[in-house]
Simulated assay, not measured.
Amino acid sequence: MCGRFLFSFDVDEVMKSYKVSKNLCNDIEKGEKFPGTKIPVILNQDGKLVIKDIYWGIKYGSKNIINARFETVEEKPLFKGLLQSSRCIIPASSYYEWKVKGKSKEKMEISQIHNESMALAGIYGNFKDGEDNYYEAVVILTVPADESIEDIHPRMPLIISKELIKYWLDPSITNIDKQKMLEANYGQNFSSKNCEGLQQMSFL
């Protein structure tokens, strides 16, 4: 899964790197990003790439759904049609996962060896909250973890390679080639490091 990530860029840097035409963000600061907050998202709007801040997570009863499995996302009513029409990327420096060690857990930072920026795959849409108010939300798509990091967690975010960003964000493509996306994801090199030491876990 992906429950936190690091955004260490200025928005202007992201716009230049991803050839984004318009900045619709209100105020995105550098630092660790958490579910339930607004995060920077790049999407195709009327044929041009824009960056905007969107709420991370879909409010579903008492839960906040922050991830969706890439393999089965089309089967879930909550995400109906979003893979076909509402794909986006979330620019990140790295993401965090917690590796279980006995009764403790170790916070690990995972990044790409040769890239400063990771393009995390997402889908977004408009949803209703408990009071029937509409809001825009994004979830991060996940896949089985690459073998180099599967000892940390069995799943990881789907990471779009630079060569496939244009393809992924093209709204005219409604039938994404999943095998192509997966092959590119696992063709990248990942590294991990302990970034916080061990924390005690509670099994109560």
Rank of each mutant, 00 (worst) to 15 (best):
61 G>Q: 12
61 G>K: 10
62 S>C: 02
63 K>Q: 13
64 N>S: 06
65 I>T: 04
67 N>L: 11
68 A>P: 10
70 F>I: 03
71 E>S: 15
71 E>R: 10
73 V>I: 14
74 E>H: 07
78 L>W: 06
78 L>S: 02
79 F>I: 09
81 G>Q: 12
81 G>C: 04
81 G>L: 03
82 L>E: 06
83 L>Y: 09
83 L>K: 10
83 L>E: 06
83 L>A: 09
84 Q>I: 02
87 R>M: 07
89 I>C: 05
89 I>M: 08
90 I>C: 03
90 I>F: 10
91 P>C: 06
92 A>R: 00
92 A>Y: 02
92 A>S: 03
93 S>L: 01
93 S>A: 04
93 S>C: 03
94 S>K: 14
95 Y>I: 00
95 Y>K: 00
95 Y>R: 00
96 Y>G: 00
96 Y>S: 00
97 E>S: 12
98 W>L: 07
98 W>E: 02
99 K>H: 11
99 K>V: 01
99 K>Y: 08
100 V>Y: 15
100 V>W: 14
101 K>N: 12
101 K>H: 12
102 G>M: 14
103 K>R: 13
103 K>W: 12
103 K>Y: 07
106 E>G: 01
107 K>C: 11
108 M>D: 02
108 M>T: 11
109 E>C: 01
113 I>V: 13
113 I>H: 02
114 H>M: 04
116 E>W: 05
116 E>N: 14
117 S>P: 00
119 A>P: 03
120 L>I: 06
124 Y>H: 08
124 Y>L: 10
125 G>S: 07
126 N>I: 15
127 F>N: 04
128 K>A: 09
128 K>D: 13
130 G>R: 04
132 D>W: 09
133 N>K: 14
134 Y>N: 11
136 E>Q: 15
137 A>P: 06
138 V>C: 13
